[in-house]
Simulated scan of single mutants.
Amino acid sequence: MNKILIVEDEESIRGFLKINLKRNDFEVIEAESGEEGLKKADIYIPDLAVLDIMLPGIDGFEVCSKLRERYPNIGIIMLTARGQDMDKIMGLEYGADDYIVKPFNPLELVLRVKAILRRIGEEKIEDKNKLIREPFIIDLYSQKLLKNNIEVDVTPKEYLLMKLFLENPNKAFTRDELLNLVWGYNYFGDPKLIDVNIRRLRAKIEDDSSTPKFIETIWGIGYRWKG
């Protein structure tokens, strides 16, 4: 059951929101002020927050900013007064996903909540298919390597080397270990094959392959990803 945090100082509006959200099988957490909202967010870790802009104490913009900083994946909808276009712009700048104008149709609010939660769910699934270690991303689904969101053309073995390194930052691998893990335990080749592939890989991913900052040589042993 998704948890929705409502931060609204007007009891009538808060109750109205609570009734309609609970009718749609959401768990609802209530707060009357920005400070209380942040405290309850830390306790309950909601999936989405509905924030009024005009709150006693810290306003909705600050609450939005703090929630986005603490919980990057949380959904946030701002409640704004009719005609306050600047509120809409500021809300989006502070990290809100959407805004809704008072007075509003409860069905519209529920649909927007569901749309944001659906998108968040899709992003979480997508994240599981990616191995991220800035500035590199390995897309496990398509088996592509990206640097600064630009695809790097690598061979299948270079891809496997990168995947192994990114999954094990700071781990020193011997040449024999890399040969076994990437080429397979039944492969009886020269360990110098690793040096050749590392050199080619460095030429593709390093800013300056002569002074590598990602793949570090461990003299007498092998290689390590500097994570």
Rank of each mutant, 00 (worst) to 15 (best):
D25F: 14
L160H: 15
R112E: 09
T211G: 06
N180M: 13
D139K: 10
L117N: 11
N24L: 00
V182W: 10
F188V: 05
E93L: 11
L160V: 15
P46S: 11
R119Q: 11
L109A: 00
G60M: 01
P56C: 03
F16H: 05
E206H: 03
E35H: 06
R70N: 14
L193S: 11
I138M: 04
G91A: 02
V28T: 01
T211A: 08
E216G: 03
E27T: 12
G121K: 07
F173S: 02
E108Q: 08
P156F: 09
E35D: 02
G57Q: 09
D195H: 00
L179Y: 03
R202T: 00
D208G: 00
D85R: 05
D190P: 08
L146T: 12
W183C: 04
W225R: 07
I137F: 02
K144R: 13
I120S: 13
Q84L: 13
D52E: 02
L117S: 09
T211S: 13
A49L: 06
K40V: 07
E206Y: 05
I29H: 08
A172W: 02
L92C: 08
G227N: 11
L131E: 03
P212S: 01
E35G: 09
N180P: 01
L117V: 03
M78N: 02
L146P: 13
V152P: 05
K124R: 13
M162F: 07
N168I: 13
G121A: 06
P212W: 02
R199K: 15
N170H: 10
R23E: 03
R82M: 05
G57Y: 14
R112G: 03
A31Y: 10
T211V: 12
P106Q: 11
G189W: 01
F173G: 01
P56E: 05
E206L: 10
L79P: 08
K213S: 10
I120W: 08
R70Y: 07
N197I: 12
R224K: 15
D85Q: 09
Y187S: 03
L145C: 14
W183V: 03
N180K: 11
K192D: 14
I194H: 00
N129R: 11
F16W: 00
I198A: 00
K3G: 00
M78T: 15
Y44S: 11
M1H: 10
S65D: 10
N105H: 05
G184Q: 09
K39N: 05
F214Y: 12
I150A: 02
R224N: 07
S12H: 15
I45A: 12
R119A: 12
A49E: 15
E69G: 08
E126G: 11
L160G: 09
I74P: 00
F16I: 00
D176W: 11
